[in-house]
Simulated scan of single mutants.
Amino acid sequence: MTKAVTLASVLGLALSASAAQATLPPTPVSDECAVWQRELSFAQSVADHDAGAFAEHLHPDAAFGVGRKPTRGREAITKEWAGLIDGSALKLSWYPVVVTRGADGAAVYSSGPALYEDPGTGEARLGRFGSVWLRGDDGRWRVVFDDGIAPAPADAAAVQRFHEGRKAECPDG
């Protein structure tokens, strides 16, 4: 074998290995951290009273309230959530604590606490949410299912613990 053929073979193998690495699917941790950040961004859309950004986080065929009669579709959910998004009904805050990728990486589950504050009375209640995210053809993660547990009254110490529990960075990232 000549040096040119050997060099070409080695370069060909190196390029093939490089191409294979570039096409490997994301790891569970990178998907989980991407959804962690998406969940924080979703909550921020409500904090910012941005209905357009809120809607962009929703899968077009999302279902909210899956533990009861669900609201289906991006437009219907955005309409139903209008008082939460604009802050007139309640001030809603949440963040993920658990984010877990499913079998083939197409779905990720997120869950964490949710704080509901009445803008008129200042009364606070704490609950939990659970969301399922799907990666779209464009690579963006969008909520396809969302539900939660009914919130219970929360005192000032519980509200403080809620705020102290929020992590801006994915714990595995």
Rank of each mutant, 00 (worst) to 15 (best):
D146N: 05
K79P: 01
G83W: 09
T27G: 07
P119W: 15
A89R: 09
K79M: 09
V143N: 06
A158F: 03
L84P: 02
V143A: 10
T23K: 11
R140P: 04
D61P: 03
R101W: 04
S30N: 05
W94L: 15
A62W: 08
W36C: 02
K91T: 14
H49Q: 07
E32K: 04
V97H: 13
V98I: 15
A53E: 04
V99D: 09
L58C: 01
K167Q: 13
V66I: 03
K3S: 05
A168D: 13
V144L: 00
F162T: 08
G165W: 15
D104F: 05
G165I: 15
D31S: 01
D155P: 07
P60F: 11
A156C: 09
D138N: 10
I85D: 00
S131Y: 15
Q160S: 14
V97I: 12
A8D: 03
F145W: 03
S18K: 10
G136L: 11
A55E: 08
A51K: 05
D137Q: 14
H57T: 02
R135C: 05
R74M: 04
E117S: 12
E32H: 02
R135G: 02
V97N: 01
L13E: 07
P28F: 01
V66L: 09
Q160C: 04
L115C: 12
E56T: 03
R142D: 02
G73C: 06
G12S: 14
H57K: 02
R125Y: 08
Q21N: 07
A62K: 06
F42R: 06
A19M: 10
A20W: 14
I77C: 03
T78P: 02
Q44P: 03
T100H: 02
P171D: 04
V108W: 04
G102W: 12
E80F: 05
A4F: 12
R72E: 02
D104G: 11
H49C: 12
G130F: 01
A63P: 00
T78V: 11
C170A: 09
T100I: 11
D50Y: 07
W81K: 07
L58E: 01
H163K: 02
G102E: 02
